[in-house]
Write a protein that binds this DNA or RNA. Structure first.
Lengths: 200, 200
DNA sequence: TTGACACCATACCAGTGAGTATGGTAGGAT
DNA sequence: ATCCTACCATACTCACTGGTATGGTGTCAA
């Protein structure tokens, strides 16, 4: 009773539009992409786009969700084969650092969010929720290590994670204007710096 | 031979426009402020604005310069009466943290720069240069402390400063969506976390 | 006095892009 | 057969804004 035609048709086009919007946003930011481009990339026109999404903000929020889901999927896949707590933590950080430094698309997208966040409550709430999950994820990783060391304070663990995530965010910004940072040796130093926050 | 009329007239209006542009940019970002608003705030019209500035980008770059100069002036004035190296370092960080957390205008302006930086080379270079001066400033402060401790490595000092500045930048972003961060107690904890990077 | 120029206002252009109005079509339900 | 509706295209509107063309005015040099 949900729909007459193949039920996945409309869902599929919504997903396609979301994906295309995301692909364009990560290249040019939100303001430099218009709805015609997104619709064209999905093989439809703006008229159809507006059947699936109420306005541009809804598309932006959808593309944010896509970003969040992709992040979680990637990190899960990355850590799946690793069981040692210390290894898991290190691998997660190395991966995140690489992403911050190398992936220009990641930089463009997140900075676009941070700017929009200043004036748009929905985007702000969306990111805030995502940040919480990321933080708790790292808290879990770090706690697993500290627990083995006999250090229990969840509160202190959370503080360290916050500091590390802040540094990672700042690193992402800095990577946007200091190109020499991409050197593998420099990347290794940075990873070590971040890990040093945890005093392992 | 510079100009016929009072030489400071045009300079004065250029300054006024720059100041007004900055005041509007820090409230609404670059994209949400148009040239008519800026001109009106300065008491002129867009026609005159274009006599002083070639285009919007030039005004943006000018407002960036204004931001940089203000930053330096503030920090200089703040540290002028303090001579103890450790005190100077701590005071600088406390002030910066407060600015990151409390000053919403600061957040709006810098995030706007970071977004624009991704596509605009002139803005990127402008910020890159500013960041260098800020880093060297902190390196000087920290080195003065470490020197007293007998620890000399400028390279290590610079790494610590980079990490601290990155964390501060990330903190600024986080303050944009986690309001509870403004609590004075929380602020104190954060300052302590940042200082702990220097292992003093 | 007159010309030149610095400085400013008015009025306009032209591109852009979000959002809408409207109409068409294909496939399932009756 | 036909009606409904999910889905899509066409063709607009309309507000906005960066930038320009042009003309006015006051002041200084000659």
């Amino acid at each position: 009773m949900k729909s007459k035609k193949a039920p996945e048709t409309t869902v599929h086009m919504s997903q396609t539009l979301r994906q295309c919007a995301f692909d364009l946003f990560v290249e040019q930011g939100f303001d430099n992409v218009n709805l015609d481009q997104i619709a064209a990339a999905a093989g439809v026109t703006k008229g159809s786009l507006y059947w699936h999404y109420k306005n541009k903000q809804e598309l932006i929020l959808a593309s944010c969700q896509h970003y969040y889901q992709t992040w979680h999927a990637n990190i899960q896949k990355l850590l799946a084969p690793v069981s040692n707590p210390q290894e898991r933590l290190k691998k997660a950080i190395v991966c995140s650092v690489d992403s911050c430094i190398i992936d220009k698309r990641n930089r463009i997208f997140t900075t676009a969010i941070f700017t929009l966040m200043q004036e748009n409550e929905a985007v702000r709430d969306s990111w805030s929720q995502f940040y919480s999950t990321v933080r708790e994820f790292y808290v879990g990783l770090l706690y697993a290590v500290k627990y083995a060391d006999g250090n229990y304070s969840l509160e202190l663990v959370r503080r360290d994670v916050d500091l590390m995530l802040e540094a990672m965010e700042g690193l992402k910004i800095r990577a946007g204007f200091e190109k020499q940072i991409v050197e593998p040796s420099e990347r290794k130093v940075i990873t070590t710096s971040l890990l040093s926050i945890f005093k392992l």
